[in-house]
Design a protein around this nucleic acid. Sequence first.
DNA 1: CCTACCGATCGGTAGG
DNA 2: CCTACCGATCGGTAGG
Lengths: 214, 214
Amino acid sequence: MGGARLDGRVERGNQTRQLVLGRAVHVASTEGLEGLSLGRLATELKLSKSGVFALFGSKEELQLATVRAAVAVFVDHVLTPTRAVPPGLGRVWRMCESWLSYSQRRVFSGGCFFYATIAEFDSREGKVHDALASTQTGWVTFVEETVEEARVRGELAADTDVSQLAFELIAFMELANAESVLHNNNPGYTKAARAILGRLHAVATDPSALPAAP
Amino acid sequence: MGGARLDGRVERGNQTRQLVLGRAVHVASTEGLEGLSLGRLATELKLSKSGVFALFGSKEELQLATVRAAVAVFVDHVLTPTRAVPPGLGRVWRMCESWLSYSQRRVFSGGCFFYATIAEFDSREGKVHDALASTQTGWVTFVEETVEEARVRGELAADTDVSQLAFELIAFMELANAESVLHNNNPGYTKAARAILGRLHAVATDPSALPAAP
DNA sequence: CCTACCGATCGGTAGG
DNA sequence: CCTACCGATCGGTAGG
């Protein structure tokens, strides 16, 4: 039937799309979203350039699809393991551990996809900037909610400034990623873990629930 | 004399070079060092493309000269005001204030030049990466030395982990820049100042020498 | 009419 | 610093 042929073509299109995006997120994490080239992706994947183009319609749509694909990877590697732990101080620490592990394992070959692409698009305008900005806001909100869960459960001091603490935790994680990618070494992760545990020990009502600083 | 004519030409060449680099540091802070284009700089400055090329010899040399020019600007706006204060806790705080002011005043139109370009080149290889990496190492060393000056003067607890504290201060400054450029707002600077003063209050032997947290 | 591609080429621009 | 070009590659589109 015609329907079966159509489904087969759509299915192949989806598979090719996933193939392209799987490559695009790694390229963008090292060379930036502007460094993505339809022709280069096509060559590397042994597809035609116009075939890749037909899948996305424009370079900007390829960039936006790449951001969405990277978000899905980030969710799998950071948010999902965090949610596997009950809300509270333990979940806050698991969140930070998962993030540092996500960066250190080079889930994206160029380190954190969002560090690279936000630095690239932060002072531009357009849909790609806006997609990255709202992704970043979503991550900050997730960190704040995770900290707030611990505070309302009485595992953090009641007067903890949740937004401030979230800012500080994110700062340590981001600099660990930046230093380790730039210098291709690991001391930044140790410093970040020490800094995070130091802040959490300072505000935890029962610090013994946390690991000692490394 | 031939020497006089040559000097005149060299002088004009130096002026044009400074003109080009003054434009290049701003372009690179917003669009990256790879986004620099000889032709675009020439058009904007009403020079010929090959004329600009002749001043630098290659795109990579233009990028390296742009990094050196940005270092000079950073020194003027951050290191020089820091050194105007006597060594100790006051100098540490002045260093952080100067950095936040340098970012917030958009001395480079795209925010901190080094945040943008290090994110761009961190996972590449070559002279530009190496120049940026050694610039970053130099900045970290300066922060550590400034903290150490305060510690040996007895203004910080004797057992302060200098390298760890420097990491934490830099993390707060970097995230303030990243957030404020991405969202084009200022709360990140307030959070960073609060975080920095919080850490300094915690290790200072005489916290009254510092401002209260904002 | 649709899709998922192909080989070839459009107008422009890159570094040199 | 200029004009005049080069080999190549960019994002995007043509007909089949």
